[in-house]
Amino acid sequence: MILPFESLSDERRALGLAFAVVAGMAFGFVLERVGFGRAQKLAGQFYGSDLTVFKVMFSAIVTAMLGIVILSGVGVADLSALNAGYTTYLWPMIVGGVLLGVGFIVAGYCPGTSLVAAASGKLDGLVTVAGLIVGSLVYSELQPYLRGFHDAGRRGSFHLYDWLHVPHAVLTAAITVIALAAFVGAERIERIVNGGRTAAPGRTRSAVFLGFVALALAGLATLAIPVVGSAAR
């Protein structure tokens, strides 16, 4: 196991934080360039006219998901170290998700994209960021009274492949297939809602889709690698 590095250990902390700034810059730049600094474009997701949010998010998840399954499959990355920060608390995550979704369409931004909008000079984005701060402080005050709910449905580090009892690589391949079908479906919905006006998919889309299929197959191929000692998936 080589990765992840212990980037925030004491002796490397300054370097780790510098990397955090660089990673954040790339994150913010990409979000701006796909159009996530514009409230109307984000809101279009919820009226069916512009499903960019879904396409970008699901492509990003598929990309990172396949990267993780391949790198952990060949023994370069330690999956359990990556999972450490993501504990499932089912009920507050479901209720929090619904409330965040309502806040998303009311504000026109999610928390990350409101920062992108604020950085682009959009006052509505800046006001959303101010709201985020207020809301998080208010919740902190209420948290002692919500303790039972806040920790409800605790499942620890619990994954879709644990729940469905299928190998990680098999599930990532299945999700990739579902994603490709969903992308085609999303484009069809946009065409219907916008009255036939088609944004030509083009060669870039085909190249990305082919890349996903190739990576999903590479992920499946790692299943043939014999498991060595503690490198068990």
Partner: peptide, 30 residues
């Protein structure tokens, strides 16, 4: 909307980025 999301993101231990995108790529059920 911001106030609502600020509270909701504390409840769900993260927002669309930290919970949805990052935990999503790890296939976390939550």
């Amino acid at each position: 909307g911001g106030i609502l999301m600020g509270a909701a993101a504390r409840m769900s231990r993260g927002c669309t980025s930290g919970q949805g995108l990052s935990g999503g790529a790890l296939l976390s059920v939550g």
